[in-house]
C-alpha cells in the first residue's frame, strides 16, 4: 500500500470521526461516558477544539446550525474528508497520479494557516463558553 498524504490521512481521520459521531450518542446514553476538554477541566479556559464532539454529532445527524454554533472547524474537517475520499478513489483507479510531498515552503504555509485557524477557533470558543472572559 502506498504512503498516504497528510490531507488523505486527515480525511481518513474525519471518516473515522464521522463513524464515531454517529454512534457516540448511543455510547454515552448507555455508559455515561464523556470526552471532556482536559484544558478546560484543569484551567477553566476552553481550547480551540472545544465543541468538536458536539459539532460532529450534530453534523452527522444533519443538524447544520447546531454544528456551526458548536465549532465551525467541523466543516473544514468534513470538506477534507469528502475531498480526500474522492482523491483516494481517483488515485486508486489510476485516474490521478499519487500525491507528491509538499515543498518545505508549502508545508510552512499550511502550518501557518492551521495556526491561524486554531487562533480563530480559540477566540470563537472563548466567546461562546466564557463571554465574561472575552
Amino acid at each position: 500500500m502506498r504512503e498516504f498524504s497528510v490531507p488523505e490521512r486527515l480525511g481518513g481521520f474525519g471518516a473515522l470521526a464521522a463513524v464515531g459521531a454517529a454512534i457516540w450518542p448511543t455510547v454515552t446514553a448507555g455508559t455515561g461516558m464523556a470526552l471532556p476538554c482536559l484544558l478546560r477541566t484543569v484551567t477553566g479556559v476552553p481550547c480551540p477544539a472545544c465543541g468538536l464532539t458536539t459539532a460532529a454529532v450534530a453534523l452527522v445527524h444533519g443538524r447544520i446550525g447546531p454544528a456551526f454554533l458548536a465549532n465551525p472547524l467541523i466543516f473544514g474537517l468534513a470538506a477534507c474528508t469528502v475531498a480526500s475520499g474522492v482523491l483516494v478513489a481517483l488515485r486508486a483507479a489510476g485516474v490521478m497520479a499519487p500525491p507528491r510531498p509538499w515543498s518545505s515552503a508549502q508545508r510552512r504555509r499550511a502550518g501557518r494557516a492551521a495556526g491561524l485557524l486554531a487562533v480563530a477557533s480559540w477566540l470563537f470558543q472563548m466567546h461562546r463558553l466564557q463571554p465574561d472572559l472575552f
Binding site: 497528510v6 482536559l38 484544558l39 481550547c47 477544539a49
Partner: peptide, 17 residues
C-alpha cells in the same frame, strides 16, 4: 501522554501530519 490530552487531544493527532 497526559500532555497529548491537555493540548485539546491534538498531541494524539500529531502523527497524522
Amino acid at each position: 501522554h497526559i500532555l497529548d490530552g491537555l493540548s485539546c487531544y491534538i498531541g494524539f493527532l500529531w502523527p497524522l501530519w
